[in-house]
Design a protein around this nucleic acid. Structure first.
Lengths: 208, 208
DNA sequence: GTCTATACGCGGATAGAC
DNA sequence: GTCTATCCGCGTATAGAC
């Protein structure tokens, strides 16, 4: 690889990294192209030698994410016969989702904000919430098919769990001085989703 | 009241109503001033005879909301000694929150979107989530003080519940063809938050 | 590929006649 | 108070030199 090419790749990477940093700090909509180039130590015009637009940058970041194989829960061969009423399995699912969001926080933030400006189909928010929680829904349907009585419709419950997770992640993971450790958040959510506010005295948390 | 004054109040009301409709349909950020005036059958410039800016309009809508006394859960004298592990009381609290969001959906949407563009304090999202769920937190602390073992920290649980509610409301209530009835949503959330995914066979829902 | 300088469009906001 | 016409700033995107 020639020096010119290396420099170019370096710039593209610098732009991506700067963008990610700024998305977390100020949000996607509040970040201007010139902010990104300035933070990367490049001229504004250089941006367009690597990305056609701000939206194209987001698409590229999304592509990186998928290529990184960091979405374990999303790989198609994910088996559906997981028992979410088992503490360990529920905890693991929440932990994977939480880790994916933490490790890809800039993209999560950007996609979340871009969805507001983008499609204005009235039920777009609901549709995407449902599709993003399809794995959870499958697990819940599996439970129901086995005769377990769920608190309600699997799609609705899965959406509720997903909404809870994403809201909390977007709120907590952006803070430079975290109010709670990941372990604490995951324990609390596991407890809450497993046995609710009442709790089950006969089945204490694993670390109790 | 003279005819001129009446016409003016009429215009202001028309602008507010048109804005609310558009906020639900396209979102706050996607709605331009000219969209609002056009939908209200007025000229663009007339907007500024009633509101200094788009933000001022939102402030006015917020003032209307508070004046309408529709925020029962927020009135200061709300007692903290409510038992959220009681099915009926939990259901009532969720129902009130749900109804407030439904009846003020335009404002809820607008505030939600405006918070993204506005303050860019890194932990702003977390702070507002905590303050908006203070009533829930109080109830949970009350339970804990009485010796009940909660799934985790009250502030964190309250935030989780609030995030769940707002995400679901923003996704479901915007659709013109609702996927679930309010009653179904409230029953499901009550069950989920009360006894979790496992459920408690000995304590079925009230309608069972 | 990277820079500097600039054009363009969109949307918020204003001016002034009626 | 309402209108029409217009201005202006901001951010995106392009042009062209190096």
């Amino acid at each position: 690889m020639g020096a010119r090419r290396a420099r170019a790749a370096e710039t593209e990477l610098a732009l991506k990294e700067a963008a990610g940093r700024l998305f977390v700090e100020r949000g996607y909509l509040n970040t201007k192209i010139s902010d990104i180039t300035a933070a990367a130590g490049r001229a504004t015009g250089s941006f367009y030698d690597h990305f056609a637009s701000k939206e194209a940058l987001l698409t590229a970041l999304l592509a990186d994410l998928r290529g990184a194989a960091s979405a374990e829960m999303r790989r198609p061969e994910h088996p559906r016969d997981h028992d979410l009423t088992d503490r360990g399995q529920l905890h693991d699912h929440l932990a994977v989702a939480w880790r994916v969001m933490r490790e890809n926080l800039p993209v999560v933030i950007a996609v979340h904000e871009a969805s507001l400006t983008g499609e204005h189909a009235p039920d777009h928010a609901w549709r995407s919430l449902v599709t993003e929680t399809d794995v959870l829904r499958d697990h819940l349907e599996y439970l129901r098919d086995r005769g377990h009585e769920l608190p309600g419709d699997p799609t609705l419950i899965a959406a509720a769990m997903g909404g809870l997770l994403s809201t909390l992640a977007l709120a907590l993971l952006r803070s430079p001085t975290p109010a709670y450790s990941d372990a604490e958040v995951l324990d609390t959510l596991t407890n809450l989703l497993l046995t609710g506010l009442r709790g089950v005295p006969s089945d204490p948390p694993a670390n109790a």
